[in-house]
């Protein structure tokens, strides 16, 4: 079973980072994984996105036009990628910054006020982790325990950031479970 997740937003939102954490979690579960970033001029201040492909078989084409799922952190990302998501995919919408909706009846749209939740936690910098927590709780592509471990590992060098990021993960999970 292969799944593809597009993480998208603007530069500085930590898009590549949550893709990285998610990819690590899949790898730790023993799955095949490929993390493909956008690169080039657009990575300097414009939109940033990365695609994470996970599979229980060796991954063939890492080039995916229609991802299974989408985590959209800003409006241009939702506008660009929502129409491409496969039927029954999960679409996480950062509703703090995105006033519109995916406008698709065939996907599982999950509104997550990621920036507001992060702000309540003390810094909007963890909005990306809130969204990641919500996405994983909803899609269940990787186990939540492993995800927690990977968040800890990612911030191992900045240990004091671990508690707030773990809390952000839980808050995201809560939104997904209550929605």
């Amino acid at each position: 079973m292969q799944s593809e997740v597009m993480f998208a937003g603007f530069g500085g939102q930590g898009i590549l980072l949550i893709g990285d954490i998610f990819a690590h979690a899949a790898m730790e579960e023993g799955r095949e994984v490929a993390w493909i970033p956008s690169y080039g001029p657009e990575m300097r201040g414009g939109t940033a996105y990365c695609l994470v492909v996970t599979s229980d078989r060796p991954i063939g084409s890492p080039i995916i036009r229609n991802p299974m799922h989408l985590v959209a952190m800003n409006r241009p990302s939702l506008e660009k990628f929502a129409p491409m998501v496969k039927t029954n995919g999960v679409v996480v919408v950062n509703s703090s910054l995105i006033p519109i909706r995916a406008d698709r009846s065939d996907v599982d749209e999950l509104l997550v006020p990621a920036n507001d939740i992060a702000k309540d936690l003390g810094t909007t910098k963890v909005a990306n982790i809130v969204a990641l927590g919500a996405f994983v709780a909803r899609s269940k592509i990787v186990g939540f325990d492993i995800l927690r471990q990977c968040v800890k590992a990612m911030f191992a060098a900045k240990e004091k950031l671990i508690p707030i990021n773990l809390e952000a993960l839980e808050q995201g999970k809560k939104v997904a479970e209550e929605a």
């Binding site: 790898m27 490929a34 993390w35 493909i36 970033p37 690169y39 991954i59 890492p62």
Partner: peptide
């Protein structure tokens, strides 16, 4: 190629 350079894999 650019993709092999930029992508992450285990």
């Amino acid at each position: 190629d650019g993709l092999i350079g930029q992508m992450m894999e285990p």
